[in-house]
């Protein structure tokens, strides 16, 4: 029986852009970066939902909303059936422990003056995970878990390589035994062998602890490997979501098709058949009307320029936000 642990409903977030003096003089209206434009999704207990999409499409913004680093302009996020931005949930600190985020840039999220041991011990103390006497032992366990040598305890973040720092961040997140893990580019800085170890670790912990994982990454092979379901985001909107294997073997949205076709092959002689995206790169400052992908889409019609396509179920596939999904995939 699947159980929804988190429900995200029509999330919007725009960041105001500071106006230049010229704009003010010319009385141009203030602009805004529309980072999220109506994201809705549900996380099922124990699943991994992969999130992929163009850089700047809003993946980290979504992740940051989930851990309440950003407050959405509108829309709601429910965890355990409670709105996390509501007054009651705000006071409840346990949410901060139960939903943990691992950041894209581990260096800036680790205190440069604290040793690894202090960083982990602090996390354990803040959330009172262990009595004082057991902290040292638990720190050693955590280092073991992420396969850092035990002498890492007294080292400062700058003494580690990028990948090693990433593992410290993972250990810190796991220290507080969360239920939901938000992994934003968690393994991107790791070599493939360590990536494999971390992925194995996540899969194993997920099984053992029924962890729910939101896995944001650019490495499509990896996302395909770890995810049960995958969401493709384009300009702050989900354009396709569904079962991972189905989506990767037969992407239905024209953007998903282009994205998947660009993954670099391991064979130097296989130059691939990347679908070239034409047209202007999209800007969240100026989201096109209608289908946000229409300026780059090969299948664009008049309807696409004015009407926003809604996400809808497509026979034998997941949900797709494209007016012409049927025709496009019929020919494919």
């Amino acid at each position: 029986m699947t159980q929804t642990v988190m429900k995200i409903d029509d999330l919007h977030l725009s960041f105001p852009v500071s106006r230049s003096l010229l704009d003010v003089v010319q009385r141009k209206p203030g602009k805004a970066v529309n980072a999220l434009n109506g994201v809705s999704l549900e996380l099922q207990q124990g699943e991994t939902l992969g999130v992929v999409g163009e850089s700047g499409c809003g993946k980290s913004t979504l992740a940051r909303c989930i851990v309440r680093l950003y407050e959405p302009t509108s829309g709601e996020i429910h965890f355990d059936a409670e709105n996390i931005f509501g007054a009651a949930a705000r006071k409840d600190r346990s949410y901060n422990r139960r939903v943990q985020m691992m950041f894209q840039d581990p260096y800036s999220s680790l205190n440069p003056r604290m040793t690894t041991g202090d960083i982990l011990a602090e996390a354990l103390r803040v959330h009172q995970m262990r009595p004082e006497a057991e902290i040292a032992g638990r720190v050693a366990e955590l280092l073991e878990l992420v396969r850092l040598p035990q002498d890492a305890v007294d080292k400062l973040p700058h003494e580690f390589s990028g990948g090693q720092r990433q593992r410290i961040a993972i250990a810190r997140a796991l220290a507080v035994e969360p239920e939901v893990l938000i992994a934003d580019e968690l393994v991107s800085a790791l070599d493939v062998s360590v990536q494999a170890q971390v992925v194995n670790l996540l899969l194993e912990l997920q099984e053992r602890l029924q962890l729910t994982i939101l896995f944001v990454a650019h490495d499509l092979r990896l996302v395909r490997h770890v995810s049960n379901r995958v969401a493709v985001i384009y300009l702050g909107r989900i354009v396709e979501i569904g079962d991972s294997e189905t989506l990767f073997s037969a992407p239905s949205h024209p953007y998903s098709q282009a994205l998947l076709s660009a993954a670099p092959s391991l064979d130097p002689d296989d130059k691939g058949a990347a679908i070239q995206l034409e047209g202007e790169l999209p800007s969240p400052l100026n989201v096109p009307p209608g289908c946000p992908f229409h300026v780059r889409c090969r299948h664009v019609t008049a309807q696409c320029r004015t009407v926003i396509p809604e996400l809808r179920a497509l026979e034998g596939r997941g949900e797709v936000a494209c007016h012409h999904a049927e025709e496009i995939n019929h020919h494919a």
Binding site: V52, S188, H218, A258, L259, A262, P264, A274
Partner: peptide, 10 residues
């Protein structure tokens, strides 16, 4: 290109 999506990476 590690932080980039595959289309931009390409």
């Amino acid at each position: 290109t590690t932080a980039l999506d595959v289309t931009i990476q390409a």
